[in-house]
């Protein structure tokens, strides 16, 4: 199947992009104007809460790892989740460690964790040494994390962000020390290993939904709701299109219009014929 050089190849593309852009922008605007947008509580959050509960029972520390995530959208969202976890454990004075591989993420994390203790009303519990920059080299970072997980026999291990092959080493070590492990990542290639070695895994878009749910940030919420509308549109098109294809045949101009590059011309031709003939 071909590709698009310009929107003119099939104006349906411009229509779809316009629809999604409007759905996102209108919802962001609604959220900013103070409308309460709804996002469901995903099961991953229950898993997080359960893991927090277990670690407070054991009294051993909790680790949070943003992996090699560079500073960007995912890092900000991972820190939102870490901040939430820190606020929960602050109430029980459970110690925590946040281990980073990126200098910028490290600086922002320090601030976020200090904030979390303040917001939980326990600024006295904040220990600047609990947020650490280990190394920016992949395997040096991984072995640093593995060493710490083993030495401190952590009770729960949270991994959120973007991960590469080093994820295996974290998950394996966490498993050996018997920690409850929750992972959340948009790196699809690492998800299988997390599913195999962790207690619960938050997959792909769920990661963004989790941080939007926690932070209630209008831009994230609005965007999430807008994206949902787009997914519903895609789903309906697939369902409707499959039925139409079955009835009209898969080569019908209407079916070609719905996304095929160059599908606009045959469709207009067909319309002209219909109008001229009818």
């Amino acid at each position: 199947m071909g590709s698009y050089q310009h929107a003119q190849d099939n104006w349906f593309a411009a229509f779809m992009i316009g629809f999604i852009a409007l759905a996102v922008l209108i919802n962001i605007w609604r959220a900013r104007a103070g409308r309460e947008l709804y996002i469901r509580r995903i099961p991953g959050l229950d898993a997080i809460d359960e893991a927090i509960g277990r670690s407070t029972e054991l009294g051993r520390p909790v680790t949070m790892i943003p992996g090699l995530t560079a500073f960007g959208v995912e890092a900000v969202q991972a820190l939102t989740i870490f901040k939430y976890i820190t606020k929960q454990i602050a109430r029980f004075a459970t110690p925590m460690r946040l281990l980073t591989a990126n200098a910028t993420v490290y600086a922002v994390a320090q601030e976020a964790i200090a904030d979390a203790y303040n917001e939980a009303g326990r600024p006295d519990l904040y220990d600047p040494d609990s947020v650490r920059f280990l190394s920016s080299e992949q395997f040096a970072f991984a072995s640093g994390v593995a060493g710490l997980l083993q030495r401190e026999r952590v009770a729960a291990n949270f991994m959120f962000g973007i991960f590469f092959a080093e994820s295996l080493i974290f998950a394996e070590t966490g498993n050996i020390v018997g920690a409850v492990q929750i992972a959340g990542t948009v790196s699809i290639t690492q998800v299988p290993f997390f599913v195999a070695a962790c207690d619960y895994t938050i997959i792909g878009d769920e990661f963004y939904a989790t941080s939007a749910y926690i932070s209630r940030e209008p831009v994230l919420l609005g965007s999430m709701v807008g994206q949902d509308l787009a997914k519903i549109a895609f789903g309906s098109l697939i369902l409707g299109g499959a039925v139409l294809s079955t009835v009209l045949g898969a080569d019908h101009p209407i079916i070609q219009l719905l996304g095929k590059p160059g599908g606009w011309e045959p469709f207009m031709e067909w319309i002209r014929l219909k109008l001229g003939g009818g």
Binding site: M1, G2, S3, Y4, Q5, H6, A7, D9, N10, F12, A13, M16, I17, F234, L237, I238, G240, G241, A242, V243, L244, S245, T246, G249, A250, I255, Q256, L258, G259, K260, P261, G263
Partner: peptide, 19 residues
């Protein structure tokens, strides 16, 4: 352009599956 070229042919490929 990426959205159009990468995802819309996949959409069309899915919705043109006869049942």
């Amino acid at each position: 352009q990426a959205f159009s070229s990468r995802y819309l042919p996949q959409l069309q490929g899915a919705l043109s599956k006869v049942l």
